[in-house]
Computed example of a mutant assay.
Amino acid sequence: MTAMPPLAPMPVAQARPVKFGALAWTALILGIVGIVGSPIIIFNNLTAVVAGVGFVLGVIAFFGTKKTLAAVGVALCVAAVVFTALAQNAVVKEIDKLTGSGPAQTLNVGETFHGTDVDITVANPKEFTTGKYSLQPNAKAMSYDVTVVNHSDKPWTSMLVIQATAGNAAAEQVFDSAAGFTGAPTQDVLPGKEIAFKVGFVDSTGDITVQVGAVLGDKAYFIHKR
C-alpha cells in the first residue's frame, strides 16, 4: 500500500494586536467617574478635570482598535462636563435666591436701579482735581452722587461694594476726607429712609462704568458715556 504523504500544517490565524485598548478603557472609566461626581458640589470640579483627561484619551484611543469603547468613553466624558456645569449653575441660582441677589443690570448714569431691598441711583458726574491730602494728590478725577433708598420693611445694612472702570482699565477710587470722599457708608438705613454720599475715581480715557452692589445682594452697572 502506498503511504499517504504527510499533510501540510494548517496556518494558524494570528491574533490582531490591540492598539490603544488601555486608553479606551481608561476613557470609559474616567467618564463614569465624572458622571458620578458631577452632582457633588466642589468635588465635581475635580471630577470634571478627570473627565476632561478622559476625553483626550478617548479621542486618541478612537484611532486604535477599540473604536466603539473609545466613543462611549468620549461621550461619557462630555456628558460629565455638561452635567457638572448644569449642577454648578443650579447651585449659583439657589444661592442668589437665598441671598436675595438677582442678575446684574446695566443702566446709564442718572437712572435708578430697583433692587430687592433698595433703589440705587448714581448721578451728577463732575470733573474735579484731588486735593494735596488725597491718597492720589492733584489727580484728574470724576465724582458721582450715590443715593440709596430702602423700600423694604426692615433696616438695610449698608455694605456696598463700589468699583469702576475707565475705558478698559480699572479706575482707582479717590479717598480724600477733606473733600468728602470717604468711601461707602456702613450705617443701617431704616425702612423708607435714604442715604446719600459721593464717590470719586481717578479719571482716564473712555467711558466710565461704576459698579454698585451689596456684598450679599443686588448689583448694578452705571455707564457714563463720554
Rank of each mutant, 00 (worst) to 15 (best):
residue 67 K to A: 12
residue 79 A to L: 13
residue 109 V to T: 02
residue 223 I to Y: 07
residue 194 E to V: 02
residue 129 T to F: 05
residue 111 E to Q: 05
residue 98 L to E: 12
residue 1 M to G: 14
residue 88 Q to N: 15
residue 104 A to Q: 03
residue 84 T to E: 01
residue 193 K to S: 11
residue 166 A to M: 14
residue 79 A to S: 10
residue 11 P to L: 13
residue 192 G to C: 07
residue 38 S to W: 07
residue 36 V to M: 08
residue 64 G to F: 05
residue 196 A to C: 09
residue 84 T to S: 12
residue 47 T to H: 00
residue 7 L to S: 12
residue 204 S to Q: 08
residue 22 A to D: 14
residue 16 R to C: 09
residue 140 K to R: 14
residue 181 F to V: 08
residue 192 G to Y: 01
residue 139 A to Y: 03
residue 150 N to V: 00
residue 90 A to E: 09
residue 52 G to M: 07
residue 175 F to K: 05
residue 131 G to I: 03
residue 29 I to A: 11
residue 95 I to R: 14
residue 55 F to R: 00
residue 207 D to G: 10
residue 151 H to D: 01
residue 80 A to S: 14
residue 29 I to T: 06
residue 172 E to P: 03
residue 132 K to D: 15
residue 123 A to R: 11
residue 149 V to N: 04
residue 65 T to G: 11
residue 196 A to K: 12
residue 5 P to H: 11
residue 157 T to G: 10
residue 191 P to K: 00
residue 120 I to S: 04
residue 42 I to H: 05
residue 70 A to W: 10
residue 190 L to A: 10
residue 43 F to W: 06
residue 172 E to Y: 00
residue 36 V to R: 04
residue 187 Q to R: 04
residue 86 L to I: 15
residue 73 G to D: 09
residue 116 T to H: 02
residue 211 Q to I: 03
residue 77 C to K: 08
residue 140 K to H: 15
residue 207 D to K: 15
residue 108 N to S: 12
residue 157 T to R: 07
residue 133 Y to F: 12
residue 7 L to N: 04
residue 123 A to T: 15
residue 214 A to C: 04
residue 146 V to R: 09
residue 31 G to I: 00
residue 120 I to K: 02
residue 55 F to Y: 09
residue 17 P to H: 00
residue 45 N to L: 13
residue 137 P to K: 07
residue 97 K to H: 14
residue 216 L to V: 06
residue 36 V to Y: 03
residue 39 P to H: 09
residue 203 D to H: 11
residue 17 P to K: 06
residue 84 T to Q: 15
residue 132 K to P: 06
residue 225 K to A: 13
residue 150 N to F: 00
residue 136 Q to V: 12
residue 206 G to V: 07
residue 60 I to W: 01
residue 113 F to Q: 02
residue 193 K to D: 12
residue 12 V to R: 15
